[in-house]
């Protein structure tokens, strides 16, 4: 669907079929601009809860490929409020595992070398 349509210069079927044009498709920068303008308009109209979700490339997951304009906290929509990509701490995890492995080897050596019985 998406891939074939994009290949011939069309928008994804969901975006084209969306009756309220809630699904928008385009270059990310342009979409970010449009979204920021929309949020500003909503705030002017008194919808203070309007916010963008997943638009920020510097968040815990490096920004989402598809971002949302929400009218409440993300969790109300079933979205995590501050997601973090699981591999962010992976180097630290391997380090801890390495330390634990060393402790294990050291404990075994001590168990066999130390003591008299």
């Amino acid at each position: 669907m998406c891939y074939d349509r994009l290949g011939v210069g069309m928008t994804p079927a969901c975006a084209q079929a969306c009756p309220t044009e809630s699904i928008q498709y385009g270059p990310l920068d342009e979409l970010r601009e449009r979204a920021a303008a929309r949020v500003a308009t909503l705030h002017e109209r008194g919808v203070a809860e309007a916010r963008l979700y997943g638009h920020d490339p510097s968040d815990g997951v490096g920004g989402d490929g598809a971002f949302f304009l929400l009218l409440d906290e993300p969790e109300v929509y079933g979205l995590p409020p501050d997601p973090v990509v699981t591999t962010r701490d992976l180097p630290k995890m391997w380090k801890r595992a390495g330390l634990a492995a060393l402790a294990m080897a050291a404990a075994t050596v001590a168990a066999f070398v130390g003591g008299s019985s």
């Binding site: 699981t86 995890m93 801890r96 595992a97 492995a101 294990m104 080897a105």
Partner: peptide, 24 residues
């Protein structure tokens, strides 16, 4: 020792909150 401890990373490197935060 690697066999015994890598499983800690296996569990921690997921989005499951109580595993991920317990990675140390």
């Amino acid at each position: 020792p690697a066999l015994a401890t890598y499983t800690g990373v296996l569990l921690a490197d997921t989005a499951v909150p109580s595993w991920h935060e317990a990675y140390p």
